[in-house]
C-alpha cells in the first residue's frame, strides 16, 4: 500500500459518501444517472469475485464490501425508494449501455492476464469501469445545471483513478516485476474521459460560479 493508492481509495470512498449524502439528505437523485450506478454495481460484482477466496487484508475486504454494498444500495434506492425514484431523470438517462457491456466483455475475452473465469471477469470490470461514467456525463450535459453535490460526486469519482495512475507509476518504479498494463491503460482512458468535466469544474470553481457544461 502506498500513499497514492490510499489517497485514491479514500477519494473513491468520499465520492460514494457524497452521493449517499445527496440522495439521503435531499431525498432526490436528480442529475444522477441510474445507468452509471448500475454499471458500477456490475464493475464491483465482477471485480470482487475473489472476495471470499482471496484474503488480502482486512482493509481490502472491508472496502470491497463497502463498494459492493453502497453501489447496490444506490441502485435499489433510485429504482424502488418511493420518494427518491420520483426525481430520477428517466427521460434524460437513456444511454444504451448494453453496447458498452458487450464490448467490454468481448474485449476481456480477448485481452486478459490469464484465461480463467475470475481473470476474464476482472479484466471485464477494469474495461467497464473506464467507460461507466459515460451515461453520467451525457446526463449532466443534457440536464445542463449541475448541483454542487453531483458535481463533487463526479469530481471525486474521476480524481480517484488519477491517484491510482500515480500509484501505478510509483509501483512500477519501486517494484521489480510490477506490470499492470490492463489497469494502467484503462485507468488512463478512464481519467481522460473526465478531462472536459475537470476543465469546466475547475473554471466554475475559479470563477466561483455554478458548474455549467456546454450542451
Amino acid at each position: 500500500m502506498n500513499i497514492f493508492r490510499l489517497a485514491g481509495d479514500m477519494t473513491h470512498l468520499i465520492s460514494v459518501l457524497v452521493l449517499l449524502l445527496k440522495i439521503y439528505a435531499t431525498k432526490s437523485c436528480s442529475g444522477i444517472s441510474l445507468k452509471t450506478q448500475e454499471l458500477y454495481a456490475m464493475v464491483f460484482l465482477a471485480r470482487y469475485l475473489d472476495l471470499f477466496s482471496d484474503f488480502i487484508s482486512l482493509y481490502n475486504t472491508v472496502m470491497k464490501l463497502v463498494f459492493i454494498g453502497s453501489s447496490l444500495a444506490i441502485v435499489w434506492c433510485m429504482r424502488y425508494h418511493r420518494v427518491v425514484r420520483r426525481s430520477y431523470d428517466r427521460e434524460l438517462d437513456t444511454f444504451r449501455y448494453w453496447i458498452l457491456v458487450g464490448a467490454c466483455f468481448t474485449l476481456a475475452l480477448v485481452l486478459h492476464e490469464k484465461f480463467s473465469f475470475q481473470e476474464v471477469f476482472w479484466a471485464f470490470s477494469i474495461y467497464l469501469e473506464a467507460v461507466a461514467i459515460l451515461p453520467q456525463l451525457v446526463l449532466l450535459q443534457r440536464s445542463g445545471n449541475v448541483d454542487n453535490l453531483t458535481g463533487q460526486y463526479v469530481f471525486f469519482l474521476g480524481a480517484y483513478r488519477a491517484f491510482y495512475i500515480l500509484n501505478w507509476i510509483y509501483r512500477y518504479l519501486t517494484e521489480p516485476r510490477f506490470t499492470r498494463w490492463i489497469s494502467c491503460v484503462s485507468g488512463l482512458v478512464q481519467t481522460a474521459l473526465y478531462a472536459d468535466f475537470f476543465y469546466y469544474y475547475f473554471i466554475s470553481w475559479k470563477n466561483n460560479a455554478k458548474l455549467q457544461l456546454p450542451a
Partner: peptide, 10 residues
C-alpha cells in the same frame, strides 16, 4: 497462491 495474479488493488 500465484502472487502477481492476485489483485491486491481495489
Amino acid at each position: 497462491r500465484n502472487e502477481d495474479l492476485s489483485h491486491d488493488e481495489l
